Computed example of a mutant assay.
Amino acid sequence: MSNENVKIISKEILSDNWYTLNKIKFEYKTKGGVIETQEREAYDRGNGATILLYNKANQTVILTRQFRLPTYINGNESGMLIETCAGLLDKDNPETAIKRETEEETGYKISEVKKVFEAYMSPGSVTEILYFFVAEYSKEMKVSDGGGHHEEQENIEVLELPFSNALQMIATGEIKDGKTIMLLQYAQINNLMG
């Protein structure tokens, strides 16, 4: 980190229960040369990766559905969210992590993935950068039912949907997850289905 306009003054851990919530006091030098002292909170949960599995021949995609507490307390009646497979890197490189997460969550063992971009998903409060991947899948790659790790309290439902239906689910609001919308639109823009 090197920005001559920023000087960290202090960093205080507010919570270190699930991930880490820090309160950071810093000085920021504006374009006009004024030095402002600011305080912000930043949630550090590590970096992550996500993937869209697609099948050209069948015109289908693999998505997941699981309960997400933050959506529930913000008005999503069921708390269930349809998403692309995703997970934290856990000290692995993004490609290794997404292959691991794909097998754990969806039951598909993939060997070839393509990184398409990376993005900060909530840069005003969360430090995480997310690495986005796509990969083709076939029935032969299915090695388990998926569903995530029981000890991690993951109760993931695996969905195989027609690509056209998944795109329509964005318009109807059935899919509201940002990373999923981004990858589905990437697939559409780049004609991944052929």
Rank of each mutant, 00 (worst) to 15 (best):
N55Q: 02
N58R: 09
Q59Y: 00
Q66H: 10
N47L: 02
D44W: 03
R68Y: 12
Y43N: 10
I62R: 05
Q38D: 06
Q38E: 13
T50V: 09
P70M: 15
P70T: 14
D44Q: 07
R45H: 01
Q66L: 07
K56R: 15
L63P: 01
T60V: 06
F67E: 13
Q66C: 00
G48D: 11
Q38I: 13
L63N: 03
N55S: 03
T50W: 02
E36L: 14
R65A: 09
G46L: 05
I62S: 06
T50M: 09
T50N: 15
R68N: 07
V61R: 10
L53P: 01
A57H: 05
Y54D: 01
F67N: 11
R65C: 04
Q66V: 00
T37D: 12
N58F: 01
N55A: 02
A42M: 14
Q59S: 05
Q38T: 04
R65E: 15
G46E: 11
P70F: 14
N58P: 00
R45G: 12
I62M: 07
I62T: 05
R45P: 00
V61G: 10
F67C: 10
V61P: 07
N47T: 02
F67A: 12
E39W: 07
T60M: 10
N55T: 02
G48Q: 07
E41T: 06
T37G: 07
Q66I: 00
G46R: 04
A49M: 11
A49V: 09
L63F: 03
Q38A: 08
R65V: 00
N47W: 01
I51V: 14
L53Y: 04
D44V: 07
T50L: 06
E36R: 06
A49R: 09
P70R: 14
T64Y: 08
P70K: 14
N55W: 01
N55D: 04
T37P: 02
Q66E: 13
F67G: 10
G48R: 05
E41I: 01
I62F: 09
N58K: 13
L69W: 13
A57G: 03
F67Q: 12
R68G: 00
Q59P: 00
E36I: 06
A42E: 15
T60G: 08
F67D: 13
T60Q: 12
Y54T: 02
E39F: 05
R45K: 05
T37L: 10
L63Y: 04
I51Q: 11
A49H: 08
A42Y: 15
T50A: 13
Y54C: 03
T60C: 08
A57F: 04
I51T: 10
G46M: 06
Y43G: 04
K56S: 09
P70H: 14
P70G: 15
P70A: 15
T37I: 13
L69D: 15
A57P: 00
I62K: 05
A49D: 09
R40Q: 11
K56E: 14
I62Q: 08
N47S: 09
G46W: 05
V61H: 10
G46N: 08
T64H: 08
T60E: 14
L69Q: 14
A57M: 05
P70C: 15
E39Q: 13
L69R: 12
T50I: 04
A49K: 08
N58E: 15
T60S: 13
K56V: 12
D44C: 07
V61A: 11
V61K: 11
V61Y: 12
T50K: 09
E36V: 03
G48L: 04
Y43K: 03
Q38V: 11
